[in-house]
Design a protein around this nucleic acid. Structure first.
Length: 894
RNA sequence: GGGAGUUUAGCUCAGCUGGUUCAGAGCAUCUGCCUUACAAGCAGAGGGUCACUGGUUCGAACCCAGUAACUCCCA
């Protein structure tokens, strides 16, 4: 069987992915092996694969494949999230395109459109993950609105309600006027925005005696006692003002105590109240208090028992309470009211002003603080044990710098707004009686039973008198159950799956959703199973572009992952994603990383072509015993390093260690050491060892580059393979004995070879021209062992081990050993002397610093013995080298 | 405004308990090679006042304090 000159990723990827599926290698069922479990952070059904997913899922797949090869029962559970706001927005947009308005649809009509949309597009992202090579157990695919998962949501709602952890109340919430729903604090993105600060005059009256200045503009505003000035960024809300507040200590406004002010344009009278909350040096020191439209004002209003006047409709337009500009959008109203105020002479000035404004994560609309009736979940009680898991180290956050952030959040946790004014999602199981009382029940029948005794009506209550709450639950209210619900832990709390797979092992996710999701899963795990949901949380970074900007669709700076796969192969992209992404650090994505990944698999492919081309001659002796022994040791050494990196979740470092082992040690050194001359056969022993090494190389590469490794695994050079003898389920090589002396000596040999090549470079001698080399071994290394390696890689015609210096030769020193290349015609004694003098100078300086250290009484007294010993050794080594150099200088002078 | 983090080669990052004259890797750069596995390559090389200022120590990239710049979270 011949092998093509280059690797064809696309073909191999399709072939092996379906082969793996067909042979159910991703499938996991409980057995006697140790489980290793990851639940996927379910991507939104509306999602298309972006670079963040690529990074996240590559890491998960590396972990899963590695665990599988280490003999664990590896289970990666995939699925999608119903993402209520995002999906509902998508469906509304789709309907709009078809000329249908949501208003004209009943709830069930709308939902049937939504499900239709979900069936059509909801699976796209999972299909895309397959292209990446994700080895999920697809038979276990779940969706957060599957019947069982929805049941779990409703049951937990009821459970928490009964426990007193869920309540209903009027609160100030973040209102998204575009999505027309409340959103949680975590879904509000704050951005700094250039705004205007408007200074507006309010007339002041004695008690309730307000003069009719309103009609006489000329009188307005001259004597300071006649008006006060407030500063606001939101002039359109003045109609909702219910007080003016000043600091009681503010000397400027003592005269206003106990008086009243009048709102311009509408002439409503409001009290002037005193509170230390007001900062005297911000704005004018007079604060307009608008309880309905500002959180702080709302709290101030509660304290001072102020009325609440809400002037906004759900869509952000002004309502009849505003008295003026009714029906206008809040931003248009702002512009118009400024003109009106100016006309009336109530606008003093306008300044530029920068401040933070909240935007909806989902719709990007400016968030409006709004009072509304919502459902809440109490967090404090559940946060406590969830915090302890992390503080005690039962759950590890990687990197651990996130522990602080986590603690800070958990200690200051506030109640969670769980209702959303949407249709797509789990409808809140609250049922209202005609008189406004409500019961919490799983369905209408149960609700009716509970409701009957409560009824205050004269006529008997009928089941149809009940109406269910129109709102649905926050998406995260289903996501937080994910690690339990994917194993049916609610429906059947003692089933084999949940008992076997739960708690899961690792969770790989973005730090942005540490609180949204991770913290709440920990709470849910404790609340509903009395156990943590996972042991390690690997927090990835954000994928950014070269300029450090977050990759996003709107910026258009994100490459299409599928195109990248097309261009560099899935293996190339996987390696590219991992090359530079330590946990918790943002990843500056650069396509050149993928190129590096592609070059890497190309290297592996070509190395394979070399080995595959060899012909074995059984009669040959093995001349490569040292090379083989060296690579064995080196492989184990690297394996230990890789192992150690993985144990600390340093995945990019594990990849780099693998990369260097394969490229440098295996290809550049080992294969070059043993490579037979062109068209010459190889001995059997070397060949067989090399085949085993290659197989081991494929194994350690597999988690990073699953496709090419599987492709090569099945080549005939490895002998017959059964149908299920695949790289994906091969067992990882184990660490064997490491011969440290051999490794150290080989490093010296490699350095000597480099120096030979260097000499060639400097003297412009072709690599093809064989050279003679002599070594005076002062270190005790037996160079006979390395004769063939040095001879081959250095292209030597002779290699002599000598006891005396060779005069008239180019020389170099590695460790303590001296090497000589007789190149009489080529030596420049002046340059050589200069070089040696430089070396001498350096060693003198070095020696001096060591001697100073050793002569320092306090060093000798305080330093650890092994450090002193090391310094003594350094001294001795330097002295030996110095002596050699001096000898060389002397012989040059002859 | 409060809290956290970062700052080491042109770029991306290592540097674990302070101890090889002030330091490593990959990529990029430069020089020479189309040497029948690989130019997506081979062989070499250069490149750093470890952000700044002080302190602790026999000894600091590492510990402490302050300064600056950037990033993130919360208000």
């Amino acid at each position: 069987m011949s092998i093509s000159k280059t690797y064809q990723p696309k073909q191999a990827e399709d072939k092996w992915y379906s082969y793996w599926l067909q042979h159910k290698f991703f499938r996991s069922v409980p057995d006697e092996r140790e489980p290793y479990t990851i639940v996927i952070p379910p991507p939104n059904v509306t999602g298309v694969l972006h670079m963040g997913h690529m990074l996240n899922n590559t890491i998960q797949d590396v972990l899963i494949r590695r665990a599988r090869m280490k003999g664990k029962n590896a289970c990666w559970v995939p699925g999608t999230d119903h993402a209520s706001i995002a999906t509902e927005a998508k469906v509304v947009a789709m309907l709009k395109e078809r000329g249908i308005s949501k208003k004209d649809l009943s709830r069930s009509e709308f939902l049937s459109y939504a499900w239709e949309w979900k069936e059509k597009y909801g699976g796209i992202i999972l299909e895309q993950l397959k292209k990446l090579g994700a080895s999920c157990d697809w038979d276990r695919t779940r969706f957060t609105m599957d019947d069982d998962l929805s049941d779990a949501v409703i049951d937990t709602f009821i459970h928490l309600y009964k426990k007193g952890l869920i309540y209903r109340g009027v609160r100030m919430v973040n209102w998204d006027p575009q999505g027309k729903t409340a959103v949680s604090d975590e879904e509000v993105i704050r951005k700094e925005v250039n705004q205007k600060l408007y200074y507006i005059r309010y007339a002041v009256a004695q008690g309730s005696q307000i003069s009719d200045q309103r009609s006489e503009k000329s009188d307005f505003g001259h004597p300071p006692s006649d008006f006060l000035t407030i500063a606001t960024t939101r002039p359109e809300t003045i109609m909702a003002d219910t007080a003016i507040c000043i600091n009681p200590d503010d000397q400027r406004y003592k005269h206003l105590h106990g008086k009243k002010a009048m709102i311009p344009l509408i002439g409503r009278e409001i009290p002037i109240i005193l509170d230390e909350y007001v900062e005297m040096d911000f704005g004018t020191g007079c604060l307009k208090v608008t309880p309905a439209h500002d959180l702080n004002d709302y709290e101030l209003g509660l304290k001072h028992h102020l009325p609440v006047i809400d002037i906004l409709n759900d869509d952000g337009t002004l309502n009849e309470n505003a008295q003026i500009l009714m029906g206008e959008d809040r931003f248009i109203a702002r512009k118009k009211i400024v003109l009106l105020l100016d006309e009336e002479g109530a606008l003093e000035k306008v300044e530029d002003y920068k401040s933070q404004i909240g935007f909806s994560e989902r719709t990007d609309a400016v968030i409006e603080p709004k009072l509304s009736m919502q459902w809440f979940c109490k967090m404090e009680e559940m946060a406590k044990p969830a915090l302890d898991y992390v503080l005690k180290g039962d759950i590890k956050l990687i990197p651990d710098k996130f522990i602080n952030t986590y603690r800070h959040w958990m200690e200051n946790v506030h109640d969670w707004t769980i209702s959303r004014q949407l249709w797509w999602g789990q409808q809140i199981p609250a049922w209202y009686l005609p008189d406004g009382q409500f019961v919490i029940a799983k369905n209408r029948e149960e609700a009716f039973e509970q409701a009957q005794p409560l009824s205050t009506q004269h006529s008997p209550l009928t089941i149809d008198d009940l109406t269910q709450d129109q709102d649905v639950l926050d998406t995260w209210f289903s996501s937080w159950l994910w690690p339990i619900s994917v194993f049916d832990g609610f429906k059947d709390p003692n089933n084999d799956d949940i008992n076997y797979y739960y708690p899961t092992n690792d969770l790989v996710t973005a730090p942005e959703i540490l609180f949204f999701w991770v913290a709440r899963m920990i709470m849910a795990g404790h609340e509903f199973r009395g156990e943590l949901p996972f042991r390690n949380v690997y927090l990835t970074g954000i994928v950014r572009d070269k300029q450090g900007r977050k990759m996003s669709k709107s910026l258009g700076n994100s490459p299409d992952p599928l195109e990248l796969i097309e261009k560099y192969g899935a293996d190339g992209v996987r390696v590219g994603m991992l090359l530079s992404s330590p946990a918790g650090n943002d990843l500056m994505f650069d396509e050149s990383h993928c190129e590096q990944g592609r070059n890497f698999f190309n290297k592996v492919w070509n190395a394979f072509r070399l080995v595959k081309g060899w012909r074995v001659d059984k009669n040959l002796e093995n001349p490569n015993k040292v090379a083989i022994a060296w690579f064995k040791s080196r492989f184990s050494q690297a394996l230990a390093e890789i192992e150690n990196n993985f144990s600390q979740y340093r995945i990019s470092e594990a990849l780099m260690a693998t990369y260097k082992l394969v490229w440098d040690d295996f290809c550049a050194w080992y294969l070059e050491m043993i490579k037979p001359a062109y068209e010459h056969p190889i001995d059997r022993e070397t060949y067989e060892n090399t085949i085993v090494f290659f197989e081991n190389v494929l194994k350690i590469l597999h988690p990073f580059m699953p496709f090419i490794t599987e492709e090569l695994w099945h080549d005939e050079v490895f002998g017959e393979r059964t149908e299920v003898d695949c790289c994906i389920v091969a067992s990882m090589p184990e660490i064997e004995q490491i011969n440290t002396q051999l490794l150290e000596e080989t490093e010296i040999v490699k350095q000597a070879i480099t120096d030979i090549r260097n000499t060639r470079n400097n003297k412009q001698i072709s690599p093809k021209e064989a050279l003679a080399l002599s070594v005076k071994a002062n270190s005790g290394i037996n160079y006979n062992q390395y004769r063939s390696i040095i001879g081959k890689l250095g292209n030597l015609s002779a290699f002599n081990i000598v006891d005396e210096k060779v005069s008239g030769a180019v020389s170099f020193m590695v460790s303590k050993d001296e090497f000589f290349i007789p190149l009489t015609g080529n030596i420049d004694p002046v340059a050589e002397t200069e070089r040696l003098n430089k070396e001498k100078e350096y060693l003198h300086g070095f020696l001096k610093s060591v001697e100073v250290k050793l002569g320092n009484e306090r060093f000798m007294k305080n330093a650890k013995p092994e450090i002193i010993e090391n310094e003594l050794k350094k001294k001795a080594d330097a002295e030996t080298k110095l002596k050699i150099i001096q000898d060389n200088l002397a012989s040059l002078a002859d």
